[in-house]
Write a protein that binds this DNA or RNA. Structure first.
Length: 255
DNA sequence: ATGACTCCCAGTGGGAGA
């Protein structure tokens, strides 16, 4: 079984690339972030023609998440239950014996901003909810664009980024607090090449210079750890014309 | 360089992203 997450930075723009990618990587489930589409504009027909059904939770212009699945999805949850949020950032479903949460974590803008305070409130709410979900569904996967680089080795220039957004001690503590619930960073279960990133700035030839961050993650419940066979970043879509600034992350689970 | 690029909604500019 294969799952993946990809921040597509506008599904309307990236739909052809998404369909190409699914044809090359027929994963069982794909979490999308930054669809930037209201639900009435979601490209259902094209995605169904590709063999997927789609759960979507969108809004105009910003944010927006979706969960594409080959099999049936049940118990769909949109947003963090009990957390009032105008921003569409979370979608969850049960499929094939797994509880899958796809999330687009807030960016946070700058450590002293109101958006950062919102990011912290959002992370607190997410953690409380994931704790309960994990208790109910030990076979849980939390994946998406976390907008957190967990460690210095996840940053191309950790000195320049020290204390900056994605790298603050507060954000990193939030990431560790998620792990402390009983989740594992699937990517770090395996030996990985140094300088492995999931995001490269559009500016400054950052991709060509491999100046990026690892901010897209797949966390799995401890119960699933023995089943994790691989976790990889697919850099190829970043080489497309008009690419997303993020690359997909793929995890493979033993049946 | 408080930049650079891309997307969106707008409407020939500005917010947001990371």
């Amino acid at each position: 079984m294969k799952l993946a997450t990809w921040n597509v930075n506008s599904l309307a723009v990236r739909l052809p690339q998404l369909l190409d990618w699914l044809a090359a990587h027929p994963v069982d489930a794909l979490a999308l972030q930054e669809t930037k589409l209201t639900d009435d504009k979601f490209p259902h027909a094209e995605i169904e023609a590709a063999g997927y059904s789609a759960q979507r939770f969108g809004q105009k212009t910003y944010n927006g998440v979706a969960l594409l699945t080959r099999g049936a999805a049940s118990d769909v949850t949109k947003g963090i239950p009990g957390f009032a949020d105008e921003q569409a950032r979370v979608i969850a479903a049960t499929l094939g014996g797994l509880r899958v949460i796809g999330a687009y974590f807030p960016n946070g803008q700058a450590p002293d901003s109101e958006k950062f305070a919102y990011k912290m409130r959002w992370l607190d709410a997410l953690r409380d909810w994931v704790r309960a979900e994990l208790a109910a569904h030990p076979r849980l996967v939390l994946m998406g664009d976390f907008n957190i680089a967990p460690e210095d080795r996840d940053v191309y220039d950790p000195v320049a980024w020290a204390g900056q957004i994605h790298c603050t001690p507060e954000e990193r503590a939030q990431f560790q607090a998620l792990l402390a619930l009983g989740l594992v960073d699937a990517f770090r279960l395996f030996e990985q090449a140094p300088k492995s990133w999931t995001w490269w700035d559009y500016r400054n030839l950052a991709f060509r210079k491999n100046q990026g961050l690892r901010i897209d993650h797949v966390l799995v419940g401890e119960a699933l750890r023995p089943q994790v066979l691989a976790c990889t970043i697919d850099k190829l879509p970043r080489k497309n014309e008009r690419p997303s600034d993020h690359a997909p992350v793929i995890v493979e689970l033993a049946p």
